[in-house]
Structure formats: structure tokens, C-alpha cells
Simulated scan of single mutants.
Amino acid sequence: MAPLRTLVIFLLLLLALVPALSRPDGGGSGFYDPARVTQLSWRPRAFLYSGFLSHDECDHLVNLAKGRMEKSMVADNDSGKSIMSQVRTSSGTFLSKHEDDIVAGIEKRVAAWTFLPEENAESIQILHYELGQKYDAHFDYFHDKNNLKRGGHRVATVLMYLTDVKKGGETVFPNAAGRHLQLKDETWSDCARSGLAVKPKKGDALLFFSLHVNATTDPASLHGSCPVIEGEKWSATKWIHVRSFDNPPDVSLDLPCSDENERCTRWAAVGECYRNPKYMVGTKDSLGFCRKSCGVCDA
């Protein structure tokens, strides 16, 4: 009878967890449910999490941002400075890290889902797209040395949708493998038909990687935000770098780019650039041994 009693207790405990697992926030600020994640693509690596945020969390982020919005900027490819451009016509603002308990909980959940440290991530950026506003196709990794100095390339992006959009506003990947295999009816915009696309749905989150597993840049990660045709779009973006963004080492990018160990490429491919940055990338006092494979300097 003892084994049966143990089994009954286990099942009761499991049933007690079901309500928490089915909550919109995943049952806790740092909890995530892999059963809600769908693989969208392997080139680029892209995944959709249904109900990553609760509707209350979405509304909270929007309310925090209102009254603080400014014209969105883009990074100049040569200087790395933020400049205005018709490529990006939305408005936006950055929240402070751990601005309140809700923001801190979302940041913790992002780290749990991506398996990337919180310190590697930038603050959450809230974006607002009104009628006709968009962000043309672009890469989240950098083309200039200045932005690489703090945290290196952006390895991953988590895009959280804070509202539904009546029409348009899709996230589209024009270079994605298999983009022509996605079936689309009349509810999709013409822009979305140019590639693999994701419709904004309040509470959902899109995770995609801008670097290959060997830390080289992935051209298939080219993506854009389609123009809003009807309604408005609010979203929250979390960019995550290959190493600490909060405490970046002072590593010069002007020194020769090289690997000091023949195994660097293999180590980078299995994630050692993120797990062992002191050896692979280096610190403010010394250069790492696999800077080329980690993509933190010019080849």
C-alpha cells in the first residue's frame, strides 16, 4: 500500500500545480513553460512563446512608457551613433532595469527562457507603432566597432507583443529558410508575404538569434516590422549580448583578431563564449584566447 499512497500524493501535488502552470504569467515571474513554445525556423533560429506575458503585464508596460516616448533612432553603420532615419518611424523609450517588481520579473523570465544571463541584456525598450509606421528590414547585430565594445554582438532578441493589431504590424524575416512555405490568407499584409512572418498577439513573445551557434553573424536573421494598416502596435524588446552589457570588459577591438587555440571554433559552437567569457573573450586586463570565434573583433 505504501507505493500506492506515494503515487496518490504525487498526483495530488501535480494537480495542485496545474492552475499555476496554466496562468498567463507561467506560474511565477521566473518560470517559463516549454510546452507553450513553438519552433518557427532553424535559419534563423526563431521560436514563438504563446502567452509569455499576462495581459495585465502588457498593460503595465504600456502605461509605464506613456508620456516618455521619443522618436525611435537607428545605429549608424560607420560611427555607431544613434541617428534619425525613415527606416524606422516608430516612437520608443527604454525602461530602467528592475524598474519595478513586474519589470524585474519579466527580465528574470526572459533569462530563464533564453538561458542567457540578465547582465548580458539591455534594458527593455517599449515601442509604439501608429498607422503606417514601420521598421524596415535590418539586423540586430552590429556593423561598427563602437557598439561592439559594450557586450559584443547582440546574440538574441526577445520581442514581446503588448497589444493585438487589427491588420499589419507583423514581424517578417525576408531571408528565412522556408519562407515561401508559410501559408497566408487575406488577413496578412503584403509586407508579411515577403518572408516568414509573425502576427502580433497580445502576450506572445518571439525569440530569435542573430548569431549562429559558432558566434558568427547570421544573415537569415534579417527582420523588419511591417507597417500598421489598421489599429496600433505596442511591443517590448529585450536585446541580449554575447557577454555582460552591465559590466563590459575594456577589450580593445583594434588589436589583431585571432584564435589562440585550434579548438576555439568548436568551443564557440557549443556556447563557451557565453559560459566562459573570461577565457574566450577576455577582461579589461587581458585579451581572451578565442576572440575571433566569439565574433568580438574584426576578422
Rank of each mutant, 00 (worst) to 15 (best):
M1N: 10
R5D: 07
L7N: 05
F10M: 13
F10S: 12
L14S: 09
V18Q: 07
F31N: 11
F31W: 15
A35R: 09
L40M: 11
F47Q: 13
F52S: 07
L53H: 00
H55K: 15
D56H: 10
E57C: 03
N63G: 09
E70K: 11
S72I: 07
S72V: 07
V74N: 07
A75G: 08
Q86F: 06
L95K: 03
I102D: 02
R109K: 14
S123D: 01
Q125N: 05
Q133K: 14
K134D: 02
Y135D: 06
K145S: 05
K145A: 14
K149W: 04
R150S: 11
H153A: 06
G169V: 15
T171E: 02
V172Q: 06
V172E: 03
F173V: 11
N175C: 08
Q182N: 08
Q182W: 03
C191E: 03
C191S: 05
A197I: 10
V198C: 01
K201C: 08
G203H: 01
L207Y: 09
F208R: 08
S210L: 01
H223L: 12
S225N: 09
I229S: 04
E232T: 11
K238E: 03
H241D: 06
N247Y: 13
S252T: 11
N261F: 15
R263D: 14
T283F: 01
D285Y: 11
D285N: 13
F289S: 15
R291L: 02
V296C: 05
